[in-house]
Design a protein around this nucleic acid. Structure first.
Length: 693
DNA sequence: GTCTGCATAAACAGGG
DNA sequence: TCCCTGTTTATGCAGA
């Protein structure tokens, strides 16, 4: 019917899915960014419309490049330093900038851990640190994208110029322009390094020598031209302002051009309007400090100890100039470098994931500590799933935190566990083991989406076992799906996607899922010609009945068919299994169920509507049979699972035959014998018709 | 102490 | 043959 296709590869894609989500999140942030950009700004480079108006954009870009060149010349005169000769020995078409060159030094997960371990920071400081990092990361991402698009556009222009027989002079101009952007990127990079150093000197961060910087992945979406324009203005103005203040460290080397402490925050504000609007950057109070880059003006992420640090290169460069030459010659923009960059991006992505996880964890810890310190009675009463929604709500209202329900103990975020208050104890802090929630014995009250959603981010990133039973989670997964049905593989994926905890020990929890699916009556397996999927019967879930051990699956007859079906998924299991060999009939049955407001199948794809009459007939027959028998045993094949009894998958276009319909159904109906069957009773004492067939 | 629910592991079978 | 899916059973833990 549906989900069969593409399910096989999903199980191994749990993390990639996770990546996908993260990327999507980033896109959203980017979108917010765009919203915050004033529309009256004129684009410096019309990237989006570069094909339509390349001349205009290139003109503007060239102007920018000239401007920067002028500034550089001025700096040369001031500082007396010489810039590396960039254009004389390089092909105009190759002005390579590695991705790593654009990468800032942001805090690695290890560093974050270090901060946490040092415990010298107040939660507020940590918050500030996180926000600053986020702003910087965003900043860097935008710059990378900016550069990427610039390069694409310039290449396009160069191609056009080549075809049009342009003069080499223009090519050189373009190359100059590109260099300008490259230097701009370097500028931003140094800006961020400065920020990092600032953090270091404030004692917020300890960076081990040789600790790798954490580069950032480029975003698939970059800044819009207005942002670029504004960025350029800001950066250049900061640059110029720096010059006018007479700072000697504004040398030619762009690594030192933006040491003004106002520059980072200013630029951040411009580049991250979202952050600025929510006040994140308001806590950023950078100090005006001298930079290590002043002492090491030729520092470069790809250059250290006289060795090129391009991945896999390690070429020895005597000085920085030779390194630059080497960089531009050996690591030009070609397929190899691009591939290496891609690899590096993937590495970065993984690191970012880790960072995100740790950030979430930190956030949760901070939030929890804050709540605990201010509201010791925040969660004193055991939260039961029975009232999880309301309790969650009240708890949410009681907490002033933006992340009020960020779970705090590894075992009980928003703990619906009936095990007492969520207080951090030594055991609770370190026990990630099976803390099991216990439902009411009579009611298997389902968890709501809110239960999970409120802690969704936490569970996604923290390897904390969710305090929900497998059955609840499986139900949630199924109900969250658009069609309220999932294949086993999709259930797996949901688990890995939603819970970091379930990204490990797959064999264990997957087995548990399968066991639960089989064991709980509420989970109904439906087959079609494409495979099988699982649905959930919520009523049955609330009943919390299990399919009895040691007994073949059977159903409990009820007053009417609808209730019977709604409350006895095993019946449907049997029926579906039995009918699966006849797809049209199966569809008709489902359609009939849908007609009778059987919620289970209302969302499923329905089969041929002309078969509804047959399904109704079947239904009537079932009703009649049950009226007469009112028995409880329905297993189609005692001693054998339904699937074993009839294994009819993938039979296509079988002609609809009432006789065939009657066969499996009779198995369902005729197996009911005991008139005094207690619905809520176990089956143990009931006679099992092992030899029914 | 017993019952019950749940998790976990394992064995097994069928199908691709 | 291996893996996935599905079923069943046994066992242990923890809460009621």
């Amino acid at each position: 019917m549906m989900q069969k296709s593409g399910t096989d590869d999903k199980i191994s894609n749990g993390f990639s899915l996770q990546n996908g989500r993260r990327l999507a999140t980033t896109y959203i942030e980017c979108g917010r960014l765009r919203e915050g950009v004033p529309t009256e700004m004129t684009p410096a480079v019309d990237i989006g419309g570069s094909r339509s108006s390349p001349t205009r954009s290139s003109r503007q870009a060239l102007q920018v490049a000239r401007q920067l060149l002028l500034q550089q010349q001025q700096q040369q005169q001031v500082s007396g330093l010489k810039s590396p000769k960039r254009n004389d020995k390089q092909p105009a078409l190759q002005v390579p900038v590695s991705v790593a060159m654009m990468t800032p030094q942001v805090i690695t997960p290890q560093q974050m851990q270090q901060i946490l371990q040092q415990q010298v920071l107040s939660p507020q400081q940590l918050q500030v640190l996180l926000q600053q990092q986020q702003a910087l990361m965003l900043q860097q991402q935008q710059l990378q994208e900016f550069y990427k698009k610039q390069q694409e556009q310039l290449q396009l222009q160069l191609l056009q110029q080549q075809h049009a027989g342009k003069q080499p002079k223009e090519q050189q101009q373009v190359a100059t322009q590109q260099l300008a952007f490259q230097q701009q990127l370097l500028q931003m990079q140094q800006l961020q390094q400065q920020h990092l150093l600032s953090l270091q000197r404030q004692g917020l961060l300890t960076i081990q020598p040789g600790q790798p910087a954490l580069p950032l992945q480029p975003l698939a979406q970059g800044m819009i031209p207005t942002e670029l324009q504004q960025l350029w203005k800001e950066v250049t103005s900061a640059h110029t302002a720096e010059e006018t203040t007479g700072n000697n460290h504004s040398s030619l080397d762009l690594t030192t051009t933006c040491v003004s402490s106002s520059a980072p925050s200013k630029t951040s504000l411009i580049m991250n309007p979202h952050a600025s609007t929510n006040g994140q950057l308001s806590v950023h109070t950078p100090k005006r400090e001298s930079l290590s880059h002043e002492e090491h003006p030729h520092s470069h992420p790809l250059y250290g100890h006289g060795v090129c640090k391009w991945p896999g290169c390690e070429a020895v460069c005597e000085d920085f100039q030779s390194f630059l030459k080497h960089l531009n010659s050996e690591h030009a923009l070609d397929d190899r470098s691009t591939a290496q960059c891609r690899v590096q991006m993937q590495v970065v992505q993984q690191l970012e994931l880790q960072l995100a996880k740790d950030k979430e964890r930190l956030q949760a810890m901070m939030t929890h500590l804050h709540v605990k310190s201010t509201e010791p009675k925040a969660a004193p009463q055991p939260l039961n799933l029975v009232s999880s929604v309301t309790l969650s709500k009240s708890a949410s209202e009681a907490s002033p935190q933006s992340l009020p329900h960020t779970p705090t103990t590894p075992t009980a975020p928003l703990t619906p566990v009936t095990q007492g208050p969520s207080v951090i104890t030594t055991t609770s802090m370190h026990t990630v083991g099976p803390i099991r929630r216990r439902y009411s014995d009579k009611y298997n009250v389902p968890i709501s989406s809110a239960d999970i959603a409120q802690n969704q981010e936490f569970y996604k990133n923290a390897e904390v076992r969710p305090p929900f039973t497998y059955a609840s989670l499986i139900r949630q997964a199924i109900l969250e799906s658009p069609e309220k049905q999932l294949t086993l593989n999709e259930i797996y994926n949901w688990f890995t996607r939603m819970f970091a905890y379930f990204r490990r020990n797959a064999a264990t929890w997957k087995g548990a899922i399968r066991t639960n699916l089989s064991l709980h009556k509420c989970f109904i397996r439906v087959e079609d010609e494409f495979g099988s999927f699982w649905t959930v019967d919520d009523e049955e879930f609330k009943r919390g009945r299990h399919i009895q051990r040691g007994r073949p699956r059977k159903y409990c007859p009820d007053e009417n068919f609808d209730e019977l079906v709604a409350h006895n998924p095993s019946l449907i299991k049997n029926m579906q299994s039995s009918h699966a060999y006849c797809t049209p009939l199966n569809a008709a049955l489902q359609a009939s169920m849908a007609e009778n407001s059987i919620p289970l199948y209302t969302t499923a794809s329905m089969g041929n509507p002309t078969l509804g009459n047959l399904a109704s007939a079947i239904r009537e027959e079932l009703n009649g049979a049950m009226e007469h028998t009112n028995s409880n045993e329905s297993d189609s094949s005692p001693g054998r699972s339904p699937m074993q009894a009839v294994h009819p998958v993938h039979v296509k276009e079988e002609p609809l035959d009432p006789e065939e319909a009657e066969g499996p159904l009779s198995l369902v109906t005729t197996a009911n014998h005991s008139p005094d069957f207690d619905h809520d009773r176990d089956y143990e004492d009931e006679p099992v018709n092992e030899d029914m067939e």
